[in-house]
Design a protein around this nucleic acid. Structure first.
Lengths: 182, 182
DNA sequence: GAACTATACGGAGACTGTCTCCGCTTTGCA
DNA sequence: TGCAAAGCGGAGACAGTCTCCGTATAGTTC
C-alpha cells in the first residue's frame, strides 16, 4: 500500500472511531466520515467498501479486551455465579460501547460472510473458554452460541433503550441463573 | 371520515399487512405500499404519517391474541416451568411473526411517545398477569418489563438470524429457568 | 339536481443516505 | 526525469422517507 493511502486509511479509522463512539453507528453518515477525515467519498469507499467494513476496522482492537475479560472473570476468587455475572456484564458492556453495535454484531453470529465474522469468532471462543472454565457449575448442555445470542439480545435491547447499568445487571442475573446448574 | 378515505385506509392496511408479512418491515418501501394499494404517496402519508404508524395499524389485532396466549398457558395442567415456557415461546413467536418487528417493538418499550406504545402496554400487562398467575414459582423480584426485554431481545436475535424454532426454545428454557425460583 | 365547501387525492420533488464511476493527481521505481 | 500503477475526490446514480400543493370528489344544503 502506498504511503498516502496508508495515512488516509489510518486517519479515516481514527476519525470514524471517534464519531461512532459519540454518535452511534446509525447516526453517522459516510459522507460525514469522509468530510471529517478530509478525503473524498471515493477514497473512503475504496478503503472500506461498505459502512460495516469500516465499522469492523474501527473495532479492530476488541479481541484482546474480550480475552482479558474472560481471564479476569475466571481469576476471580468468587463463586461460579459471581464469575459468570462478572463476565456477562463485561461482555454486555463491550457490546454496547458503540451505540448500534450490539444488534449488528449479534445479528451476524453464524454468518461467515459478515464483515463481523472475525469478531463473532472471538466472542464465541471467549464464551467457550468461559463455559469450560466454569465446568460443572453450568447446566450441561450450554452452547457458546446460545450465550452469545442471549447476551447479545439483552445488550441490543439495553443499547436501543439506553437502559441504566443496574437494569441490565438485573436481566443478566436472570440469564446467569438460567445458565447455572440448578 | 369520508367513505372514499375509509375505503383507501382499509385497503392500505390490508395490502401492507400482506407485504410486511411476506417481505419484512425493512424490505417494504412506502412507495411500494402506495403503488400496491393503488393510491398516491400523499394519500398514504396522510393516513399514516410514518412507516411505523402504518405498521402499528397493521398489528392492530394482536392484543387479543396475546391475552389468549396468557390464558392458554395458565390453563395448562402442567408444572409452572411448562406453563412459563409455553407462554415465552408463544410470546417470542408472536414477536417474530413479521420480520423486523421484534427489535422495533422491544426497542420502544418504555417510550410512551412511540407508535407501538399501546402494543408495549399489552405485552407488559400480559407478562404481569403471567407473573401473578405463576406466583411463588417465580423468583420474587421479577418485573414484567424485564421479561418483555429479555424475551424481546431473544426474539429480535432469532428474527434477525432466522433461527429455527428449537434453537429459540433452548434459549427460552434458559431464560425460564432464570426466572423460576431456585 | 345544482352549487358549494370541507375533505381527500396523487404525484412531483425536496431531502438524506449509500455507493459508483471516471478523469485527474501523486507516488515511487527505473 | 519519466512513467505506469496506485490513489484521489467529488459529481451524480439510485433508493428511501416524507412534504407540498393544485386538482378532484363526497356529501350537504337549498
Amino acid at each position: 500500500m502506498r504511503a498516502d493511502a496508508r495515512r488516509n486509511r489510518d486517519r479515516i479509522v481514527d476519525v470514524a472511531r471517534a464519531l461512532f463512539r459519540t454518535k452511534g453507528f446509525d447516526a453517522v453518515s459516510m459522507d460525514e466520515v469522509a468530510k471529517a477525515s478530509e478525503v473524498g467519498t471515493g477514497t473512503l469507499y475504496r478503503h472500506f467498501p461498505t459502512k460495516e467494513t469500516l465499522y469492523d476496522a474501527v473495532l479492530e482492537a476488541w479481541a484482546d479486551k474480550v480475552n482479558a475479560a474472560v481471564d479476569a472473570a475466571l481469576a476471580l476468587k468468587a463463586p461460579a455465579r459471581e464469575q459468570l455475572i462478572s463476565w456477562l456484564t463485561e461482555y454486555a458492556t463491550m457490546l454496547t460501547a458503540h451505540k448500534g453495535a450490539a444488534a449488528r454484531i449479534t445479528a451476524s453470529l453464524g454468518d461467515p460472510g459478515s464483515p463481523f465474522a472475525a469478531k463473532c469468532e472471538t466472542y464465541l471462543s471467549a464464551n467457550r473458554r468461559m463455559i469450560e472454565g466454569l465446568g460443572p457449575a453450568l447446566r450441561s448442555e450450554v452452547e457458546p452460541m446460545q450465550v452469545c445470542r442471549i447476551v447479545g439480545g439483552v445488550a441490543a435491547v439495553a443499547d436501543s433503550s439506553e437502559l441504566p447499568a443496574d437494569s441490565v445487571k438485573g436481566m443478566l442475573e436472570i440469564v446467569a441463573d438460567g445458565l447455572l446448574a440448578s
